[in-house]
């Protein structure tokens, strides 16, 4: 009997704790991340099993001796029942044992360790460039073109961003190579050697996202500039920059951030194409080669790396959004 009050208060504290909206948000978001990771890992596992026919035979070619094929199959554990294989796969992931590449016989984790930094550099730099260009551009054009002012500026901005946003990054890369490397000799054609070699691939990746993002920023700014609280700011006769940057911009940032998170995710994937244009020694050129060579352990691992990268980016964006705009993301009780 004497324990009862304690138990009640314990439960009371637990529900208090659970009532905290940040705790609930963290729990919900973590669960979502874990489920997504599980879907990703499972998909990567079954990917190889979904390949029609015998993947090992396909990888080694029709001329490979039968005992080599069966030895390889055995080495990869493909003889085991599916569930056992799945268990091995999960255990391997947790311990960092991703197997060896069929082609080079090197540990997959070693290949990824060598290649990943180059890809990450490219994606992050391109993202930074896109954001740094898009936000001032979008804000500036929004302020200039409010309520149908400066029609020509608006038309020029909208049409050029629509076109730039529609040009695929690899085509842009090829055009850049032609103009700046082949014709003008300003920058190297390909490879990763010194700061100048970064310029073209980063630009090729950044232009499209910058165009899309600046349009979003402009639209968001336009709607914020028409709100009542901006009228209040004007009624206080604050300076133009203060009204636009301190009062309007923070409120326009929510949607901008959501979109930029998606853009960063697609940038990670976009590196695959751009790396192939510029012979960039990253994961993108590796995955294409290993798909063509049917090097399944390597493909599986790279897909996982890309997927985990995207999931982490999405999670970080959600958390940042929750901190910046708590009301819209995690809700007020």
């Amino acid at each position: 009997m004497s324990a009862t009050p304690v138990a009640v208060s314990e439960r009371g504290r637990a529900t208090d704790w659970w009532r905290n909206r940040w705790v609930r948000f963290a729990a919900r978001r973590t669960l979502r991340l874990l489920v997504s990771l599980w879907v990703l890992v499972t998909a990567a596992f079954f990917m190889v099993h979904l390949v029609p026919g015998d993947p090992i035979r396909a990888a080694l070619g029709p001329l490979a001796p039968a005992d080599l094929v069966s030895a390889q199959r055995h080495a990869l554990g493909l003889d085991d029942p599916l569930l056992v294989q799945y268990g091995h796969f999960l255990r391997g992931l947790l311990t960092g044992q991703l197997g060896d590449s069929i082609g080079s016989q090197l540990p997959v984790s070693q290949i990824i360790g060598q290649r990943l930094p180059a890809t990450a550099e490219l994606a992050l730099l391109a993202f930074a460039v896109a954001v740094v260009v898009a936000i001032p551009l979008g804000v500036g054009v929004a302020v200039l073109t409010r309520h149908g002012r400066a029609r020509r500026t608006e038309l020029a901005f909208v049409s050029s961003t629509v076109i730039l946003g529609a040009v695929p990054d690899f085509v842009l890369g090829v055009v850049f190579v032609f103009v700046f490397a082949v014709n003008l000799h300003w920058l190297p054609v390909a490879g990763r050697d010194g700061a100048s070699s970064f310029v073209l691939p980063v630009l090729a990746l950044a232009v499209g996202p910058a165009a899309i993002l600046s349009r979003i920023v402009r639209v968001e700014m336009l709607s914020v500039l028409d709100t009542d609280y901006l009228r209040t700011a004007r009624a206080k006769r604050l300076s133009g920059p203060r009204i636009n940057l301190v009062h309007a911009l923070p409120n326009a940032v929510t949607a901008t951030l959501t979109v930029s998170g998606l853009l960063l995710g697609s940038l990670v994937a976009g590196t695959v194409l751009v790396e192939n244009v510029f012979a960039w020694p990253g994961l993108g050129s590796t995955i294409v080669q290993s798909i063509i060579n049917k090097d399944y352990p390597l493909v599986q691992a790279i897909v996982l790396v890309y997927g985990v990268g995207v999931l982490l980016i999405n999670t970080v964006v959600d958390v940042v959004l929750a901190v910046l705009a708590p009301r819209s993301t995690i809700g007020v009780d």
């Binding site: 997504s36 998909a43 990917m47 998606l262 995710g265 697609s266 990670v268 994937a269 976009g270 695959v272 194409l273 995955i287 798909i291 897909v303 890309y306 997927g307 995207v310 999931l311 999405n314």
Partner: peptide, 11 residues
């Protein structure tokens, strides 16, 4: 939907 299209294509 949260995964970029190109990644799904490669998959």
């Amino acid at each position: 939907v949260a995964f970029p299209g190109l990644l799904l294509v490669l998959f």
